[in-house]
């Protein structure tokens, strides 16, 4: 009897899982395999071009320091954007989870999710209007302050960070919110009754207990930001050359898909290595 039930369960599991796996196969595995194949070619295998299998594309990454420098720049950008998002997003999640209730919480939630609903190009260009010299921000600051301030943030790393934080902030807010909501209020009350001040409660209780949520949000932000190209290009201008923009160039401008593919896989490998190195911390935070 037990075996038939187990068999039924397995059948049910396969039935329920198959759409997702089918989709992953078609939408992720196949294109990724094609890209992996391209990355070992000397030229794109269509349009009647000559091509052969080679390791040159991967070798190119190590032949100059350009790519490594850009990758490092992108990783730093990822760290900064992730850090800013966590620092800005966590208090916001705290307010959503523990301070406001009822309708005002719904309204605040809507505001948090808003970036998800707007087109990313529109979002970036509106930042351009706000940040450029003599733009909205510039004029607003000058209207308030009596002395003259030149706030030309446009085409600077700051502008890129602002744009990226705006785009990805909801991730860390939502994951932190879920983690914070799972913390029983009586735990905080118990800590207070034992004489703990707010700072102690934050460091010894709230942060350890919400760490899985914060880390999940950080990973969700870090990974796409390292490979981002739109915000650096549009908000960074001349300074906006990052690893992601170089990959984009290979596909869109230079038409060197094999090099673009190889650079993408190196990025994938580096990001996976970073996550693997961080996984012991992740595991400890979960227990």
């Amino acid at each position: 009897m037990a075996t038939t039930i187990a068999g039924q369960d397995r059948l049910r599991a396969v039935t329920l899982l198959s759409p997702a796996y089918l989709w992953l196969t078609v939408a992720v595995f196949l294109p990724l395999s094609a890209m992996a194949f391209f990355s070992f070619l000397s030229d794109v295998p269509f349009g009647g071009r000559d091509w052969h299998v080679t390791l040159d594309n991967y070798r190119a990454f190590f032949e100059t320091t350009t790519y490594a420098t850009l990758l490092w720049k992108s990783l730093k950008l990822g760290l900064i954007v992730t850090a800013v998002s966590v620092i800005v997003g966590f208090p916001c999640a705290w307010v959503l989870a523990k301070v406001v209730k009822g309708r005002s919480r719904e309204a605040l939630f809507l505001l948090v999710i808003l970036p998800f609903w707007s087109n990313s190009l529109v979002r970036i260009f509106s930042w351009a209007i706000v940040l450029r010299g003599n733009g909205v921000l510039d004029r607003a600051v000058n209207a308030v302050l009596p002395w003259d301030v030149k706030l030309n943030l446009m085409f600077s790393p700051t502008a890129i960070v602002i744009g990226l934080v705006h785009s990805y902030l909801p991730y860390v807010i939502l994951t932190s919110y879920l983690a914070l909501q799972a913390i029983d209020d009586s735990l905080i009350e118990a800590a207070r009754s034992l004489g703990a001040k707010r700072r102690t409660i934050l460091w010894r209780l709230i942060l350890p207990l919400s760490a899985p949520g914060i880390i999940a949000g950080a990973v969700l932000i870090f990974v796409p930001v390292v490979g981002s190209f739109m915000e650096p290009r549009l908000l960074g201008g001349r300074l906006g050359t990052y690893y992601g923009t170089v990959i984009e160039d290979q596909f869109v401008a230079v038409f060197n898909w094999p090099l673009g593919a190889a650079l993408s896989f190196i990025l994938l490998a580096v990001v996976l290595a970073i996550l693997a190195a961080a996984s012991p911390i992740l595991k400890r935070a979960r227990t």
Binding site: D184, E189, L194, G195, K197
Partner: peptide, 15 residues
């Protein structure tokens, strides 16, 4: 936190 009380909660509230 300054009242010098000890409290046991209904759900124990262990960390």
């Amino acid at each position: 936190e300054k009242r010098g009380i000890g409290m046991v909660f209904q759900n124990y509230a262990l960390f």
